[in-house]
Design a protein around this nucleic acid. Structure first.
Lengths: 348, 348
DNA sequence: AGAACTATTGGCATCGATAACATTCTCTGC
DNA sequence: GCAGAGAATGTTATCGATGCCAATAGTTCT
């Protein structure tokens, strides 16, 4: 308005009607071509595609969703913390979904508060996702969460459960058993544990696996040191562990905490692995490249993401069918932060 | 069908019409209440809200988008690699967008291939996003990319440009200058550089900043060692650097590479920081907790995400206005991996 | 050749919300 | 007491694609 000479101007993008007109067919036929329907003469199809190309037509997903009632989108509830490991889970989900022709909508929540989680789920529901993957540990399932997940196919990937959700998980107690047994096999009398926060099912399961393994072998079960997954919590606990002479083996519930522990031990003059062996969980990219390189238990996160999508889509497409929980196995990766007890090379 | 007793059954979710009926008003009034329109009697509003609550009404965003023409969604193109740093960028974007009432749709691409990027942009365009944040380095801007971004408000956050896009960036050459000068200030004769891959503008800018600083001081500019951001590429280059006696200071273009370098030096028996100082860029969470803790240049990624969203929304809401590029400043964080030259404490 | 199909295509209603316009109602001010 | 402004609410058309059903064209079979 006013002096504008009206350059380009945002002219309305073409719709199916326009394409249909350009190709000399009905909009319906255009729709059939675009959704890959079978019964269309090759020649007609070609003509339509040409018109699509020429006009630069792009499908309007809002209209498609409204009309068809299917959004071809799945939602993921994620925790907004920079845990390396979780990232791969999301990638696995994205790739698997894309391969199946679905898109992914992510709702991150900054905390595990019931209300924050509700809000995230709510956002997803508003986007009419066809199903949800809960990639967070649900401690307390509020009525509202139950209601939201109840009306939507849901898969949880951390072992927590809501009524009517499927579970895909990494066997965390197995991860803990692998770690603990590895240290016992190296001749350590017992294994100390720096755990994750109690609200995380992963953390609890790892504690269980660790304790069971020790008990099965008749070893003393030392008191647990609590961390919060962060390097700094590992450091804090490391400063404690390093002051206890009898400690020779530590199982940290995450690689990042393991690094913190190692650093603290180092500052206290206790060598890893000669004086104390430390093992983590996750196998982050840096595990191999810090000093010493970290022995850890690798978690197949990406694979788990794929699996979760498979389950979810099956659940979406054949509602009635019940599917049993699935779990994938972690794997021990031995590097340089663990050693046989008393392996001290020189000093002391 | 068959023996089913017909439990619950998926009855159609309520729509505005249902709510309107229940509240004894017209659908239009319901719409007004829900979109916070002013002219509604408080009593009516209350009645509507009660009905919404009672029926468990949820808005249908597809219908809303179709009808209003606005999706209130912005798209982000991300690279699907587990770089710690980028994660915070996404969080910053998500939070800022949410605060402004927008949702975020993420399209990850596994590579920087033109076709992969086109595909990602295409996916976003199909979701009728109102604008796009390109969080990837665009080397080659294909005609198709130009076309896609041309018709959509776009902000790039790594310094690369498309015609008609805005730029928000961290001043990478400044980051490099900080790092290089820090090492020179410590008395090192010159600084060697392990760079990022040439397709990344960040990497190129860091190289420039590094070179400029050296030249400004009249120092020799050593040959560049090329990495790919990964710890293993740092390690590989570290094995080379460690064999060159004159090397006393290394500037790695990322923390992860820095760790790789340090590990390699360690294996070659060269001590950090006594024999060689190493500095990184990013300030990842582990930087403080590895041994030695890493001196680095911190990048305010989250802030940058917020800024990018601000720009994008302004761009969306007032099309004509041109906004100038903005850049945010990195910050030097001194820890234990750098030391004055010749600071060797004991040995050798 | 006529019936019975099948492959292809078109017409129309519809999904659920909003925009634009029309209407009713309620106060002012003179 | 009545015109006129403005608030509150209702009516109708519309967004763009798909589902369902009908119509036409082309084939096969007896």
């Amino acid at each position: 308005m006013g002096t504008a000479i009206g350059e380009g101007e945002t002219r309305k993008p073409p719709g199916m009607t326009d394409v249909a007109q350009a190709a000399g067919v009905s909009p319906q036929t255009v729709s059939r071509v675009l959704s890959g329907h079978a019964n269309v003469r090759p020649e007609t199809r070609a003509r339509v595609l040409a018109a699509v190309e020429r006009l630069g037509y792009r499908k309007n997903s809002a209209a498609r969703i409204l009309s068809s009632g299917r959004s071809r989108t799945i939602g993921v509830v994620n925790l907004q913390t920079a845990f390396y490991s979780r990232l791969n889970l999301t990638f696995g989900i994205e790739n698997a979904a894309r391969a199946a022709g679905y898109s992914v909508s992510i709702a991150s929540t900054a905390s595990l508060d019931t209300s924050a989680v509700e809000e995230a789920l709510s956002r997803l529901a508003d986007q009419s996702v066809e199903g949800v993957i809960l990639a967070i540990p649900l401690i307390h399932v509020s009525p509202r969460i139950e209601q939201l997940t109840g009306s939507l196919p849901t898969v949880t990937v951390d072992g927590s459960r809501t009524p009517a959700s499927e579970v895909v998980a990494i066997d965390q107690s197995q991860a803990a058993r692998l770690a603990t047994r590895h240290l016992l096999d190296l001749g350590h009398e017992t294994v100390w544990h720096v755990s994750g926060p109690g609200e995380w099912l992963d953390a609890v399961n790892r504690i269980d696996g660790w304790r069971e393994t020790l008990e099965a072998e008749g070893r003393t079960v030392p008191p647990i040191l609590k961390g919060d997954w962060s390097p700094s919590s590992g450091y804090r606990n490391g400063l404690i562990l390093g002051r206890i002479p009898e400690v020779t083996a530590v199982f940290a519930a995450s690689d990042e905490m393991a690094f913190g522990v190692i650093r603290a031990l180092h500052e206290l003059g206790r060598r890893v692995p000669q004086d104390i062996s430390v093992i983590g969980v996750d196998d982050i990219a840096l595990a191999e490249y810090c000093s010493p390189s970290l022995t850890t238990v690798a978690q197949p996160f990406e694979e788990m993401g794929t699996l979760a999508v498979d389950h979810l889509l099956r659940h979406i497409n054949e509602p009635g069918a019940a599917h049993e929980p699935t779990s994938v196995e972690p794997e021990l990766v031995v590097r340089a932060s663990t050693a046989p007890v008393g392996a001290a090379s020189g000093t002391h």
